[in-house]
Amino acid sequence: MEPALIKSRALKLIHDPTMTIGLFLALLLGGVTILGGWLVPHDPFQINMNNRLQGTSFDHWFGTDQLGRDVFSRIIYGAKLTIGLGVFAIMIAVVIGVPIGLFSGFIGGRVDAFLMRIVDGILSFPDFILAIAIAGMLGPNLTNLIIAIVLVRWIVYARVVRGLVLAEKEKEYVLVSKVSFSSAFKTIRMHLIPQILPDIIVMAAIDVGKVILLISAFSYIGLGAQPPIPEWGAMLNEGRSYFQVVPSLMIYPGLAIMLTVLCCNLLGDGLKNYFDIRKRRG
């Protein structure tokens, strides 16, 4: 793509305030997630019983927790877990769900019927309950939590992609592609993926927010990250007993979760507008 074109598209992208705020937050949170380990002023695992339950000070911006650990450092460090794992889980779900949806929709027939019955079966359970069941069965830790989340999320992608493909494959250019003897794989790559990609990106952006909530919720009820891991949901759980004395122990992790989910939703909406405009212009 020519530089001028990239520039004009980039300008259009940040023209939308939703998008601008979303992008700003995403850059901030992304930076924190990646650089978290280097940014922390204190060791997030360092226990110091003499210094417990302190309020905000110059040394401890968000104060310290019941074991004297620096809350600010723990939140920064925890971004890697909460956000990183959320993004990771969605990536895996997309990687599994999208190809299955593509082939199921494109090939159709019995393959499609078989795959979609599995999907229907899983979809008939509420995903939160199903994830609790899976995580409960596998045992409470972060890895099993991610497995549980991927297992319930991939079907959503498979289902959506299949629907999009079914609509798209009736278009004549897919038929033309067949007439010019492109393989199924090539037709999918050339004609279907570019069509469904925007929808998947938008969906994934919003989904990351949902999954982060899910991870935190699971950690809060003790099925995800276990202490002393500074995952935000687990921190909420740990701070619960001291809520009346030092409410900041719950407020800061809660704010962090809220900000992240907000960022995902803004980003998703912004991208949706952006792609819609492009769709309308062709």
Binding site: K171, E172, Y173, V176, M190, H191, P194, Q195, G282
Partner: peptide, 10 residues
Amino acid sequence: DSTSTLNPKL
């Protein structure tokens, strides 16, 4: 329909 025989994204 020449419109639908060309992929709008390409």
